[in-house]
Design a protein around this nucleic acid. Structure first.
Lengths: 211, 211
DNA sequence: TTTTAATTGTTGCAAATGCAACAATTAAAT
DNA sequence: ATTTAATTGTTGCATTTGCAACAATTAAAA
């Protein structure tokens, strides 16, 4: 994922953040945050630590929208935070910079580092967009098996390897694929039995030819 | 959807496009296009006409990724065109401008209209991002009924009205929701019978309180 | 107008899936 | 080391869904 401060020197970085009136915040581990600033559009940047953007619907089903580490960018639009049902959860002690979206987007200046920052944001949201599209590819598959195989195909394609290391646990994977965990577990068993895959913890090896 | 040339005068627009080496193309109705330029990242802008970005998978299932009219922006990253499985279909005679993504993103200039264009692109992709997130919200619902209700909720929210006008036909709606058309038809019947909705052609009226 | 094509509606049935309830295993905390 | 919590695995069963096959309706073309 592109660094939001790519091609901006530390000195210009400071200037930029000052210019855009950055808000620097620190939060402890396992805390729901930002419930207070839902009224306006923001851009948030994770400077250190890890956060999850999650959603809990009226049935109590939890969905992980995304997980962000250092240099991770989020915010209204970038992630749909305006919707009251979304929450941000710190997984570790976390430092966050908050910017005002409208302020950032409508700032008038000829400073090069500002325009570089906008370009970086464009690249970042582009990258996120691709990920969203991939998730949609998966979710539009009609069976659990096809969802799993599509997920494997995408993950395998990232590094061009038949060996996949799951970036989250099986419970969270089921959430990501929007399927019942138990049903997924059953389907994984079938895929193992039929010789399609090999599973060792979070390491999955694909034993079939790419389709 | 934001105009990609917002806040850029027609004169500067011409300069910008010349500078970025635009490629102007015209296509007749109902034509699969752009199969030729999959090798590099592009930004496409629909100047007139209508196109659909579609996907046909190995099972023959067609998915409409998005439909774009005048000022619609698409391209690698914006829409996952590098993937060989995607196609662009003109629904009318269509004029398209093609730009080179890397060229656009890495161009070096202090011209204001260029930076305005980048900002516009950022806004556009932001808007698309929101739409993708909404679709994911729908697709993560586990039953056809909940998918329909979530879709209604989002559409209703757009104009704050209980009356929805479907932007596409029922066949395409089923594609969008990634469900079987017949099963959707059945579920819509139940929703009508239970007094939740009223359907007249593409006009759907919600008869229940927002949840 | 007549014919043809596209869209929408209907329904039986087999297959897939969510759910529930619980066991087994692994990780974390004390 | 022991206890507690979290994650993973398993399975019967009711429900939901996709699929197929076809009828009805609407739109487009000849």
């Amino acid at each position: 994922m592109t660094d939001p401060f790519k091609n901006i020197s530390p000195k210009n970085c400071e200037k930029l953040l000052y210019m855009l009136e950055v808000n620097r915040l620190t939060f402890p581990k396992n805390k729901l945050i930002l419930n207070n600033i839902r009224e306006k559009n923001i851009i948030g940047i994770v400077m250190s630590g890890v956060i999850q953007i999650i959603k809990i619907d009226y049935n109590g089903n939890r969905t992980i929208i995304e997980e962000l580490a250092e240099n991770g960018v989020f915010g209204t639009n970038f992630s749909p935070l305006l919707n009251i049902e979304y929450d941000i959860l710190t997984k570790e002690e976390t430092d966050i910079y908050i910017l005002d979206y409208e302020e950032v987007i409508s700032f008038q200046t000829d400073k090069e580092y500002y325009h570089q920052f906008i370009k970086n944001l464009l690249e970042i949201i582009n990258e996120k967009f691709i990920e969203k599209n991939q998730r949609i590819e998966i979710l539009t598959k009609k069976t659990i098996r096809n969802k799993l195989l599509e997920y494997f195909r995408i993950e395998s394609g990232k590094y061009g390897s038949r060996v996949i290391y799951l970036p989250f646990n099986f419970t969270d994977l089921a959430d990501y694929l929007a399927i019942d965990r138990c049903a997924m577990s059953r389907e994984l068993k079938y895929l193992k039995e039929e010789g399609f895959i090999e599973v060792k913890g979070k390491k999955i090896t694909l034993l079939y030819d790419k389709y």
